[in-house]
């Protein structure tokens, strides 16, 4: 069973419906026991880093998630669910993350600091360059478009975890992979056909 972790933020229903569309049942829960017993976990996320860590902590979800990942079971982080895996984020002051992937979460350079004159949030459809074509990205051509909405991006210490990059003023990491741990900065559940393809690929891994 696929479990979507509910920690009181954002729109989880779209992720659930996305899995249903490609033939998988996913349950939404904040019960640490159910999270521990899952076959696969999805950690979606919108909102602020600090609040999300706080909510995960309050619901007693941090240890079950870490244990789950350490066992090598399939995990998919989406948007903030990617950022939370990192050591720390500089959103609203420096805050500790789950520290499963070493590295930082930093803000896009202000328009005043670049010649590119970019707007923040990075909002809309942008293309990905695939560096590591793992199972979850099967059938996704290079330069495919996905829907992004974020102001911060991840900088992993170990570049080997980078699976995709995207250009927005800077070339940033838009997907990471480490064994069965996958995480994407964009929203597959909002990226029409190709996004659903990623959800389907993830569903196939867990069965």
């Amino acid at each position: 069973m696929i479990v979507i972790v509910d920690y009181g933020m954002g729109n989880l229903r779209s992720v659930q419906k996305g899995f249903e569309r490609v033939g998988y049942t996913a349950v939404i829960t904040n019960d640490p026991n159910k999270v521990g017993d899952a076959d696969a976990i999805v950690l979606p996320g919108v909102g602020a880093f600090r609040d999300c860590m706080r909510n995960l902590n309050k619901s007693g979800l941090i240890d079950p998630i870490k244990e789950f990942i350490n066992k090598g079971k399939p995990f998919l982080g989406i948007c903030l669910g990617l950022q939370l895996l990192f050591t720390e984020s500089e959103e609203f002051g420096v805050h500790k993350g789950l520290d499963i992937i070493k590295g930082r979460v930093i803000r896009f350079p202000d328009a005043s600091n670049t010649t590119t004159n970019i707007k923040i949030p990075h909002m809309g459809w942008n293309s990905v360059r695939i560096r590591n074509r793992v199972s979850i990205f099967e059938g996704i051509p290079d330069d495919s478009y996905f829907y992004f909405v974020h102001s911060y991006y991840v900088v992993p210490k170990d570049e080997d975890v980078i699976a995709m990059t995207t250009n927005y003023g800077v070339e940033f990491t838009s997907a990471i992979v480490k064994g069965n741990l996958f995480a994407v900065q964009f929203h597959p559940e909002k990226s029409q056909e190709l996004g659903l393809k990623i959800l389907r690929n993830f569903g196939e891994i867990h069965t």
Binding site: S14, K17, V149, H187, E189, K190, S191
Partner: peptide, 30 residues
């Protein structure tokens, strides 16, 4: 709509309270 289409959805018109926003996001608005 959120059951059928998988793209960002914005809703406007008459939004006045925090609860209005919460209800729309919960229903599937982005």
């Amino acid at each position: 709509t959120a059951e059928k289409v998988f793209m960002p959805l914005t809703v406007g018109g008459g939004i006045r309270r925090v609860e209005d926003i919460r209800a729309l996001l919960k229903a599937g608005a982005d």
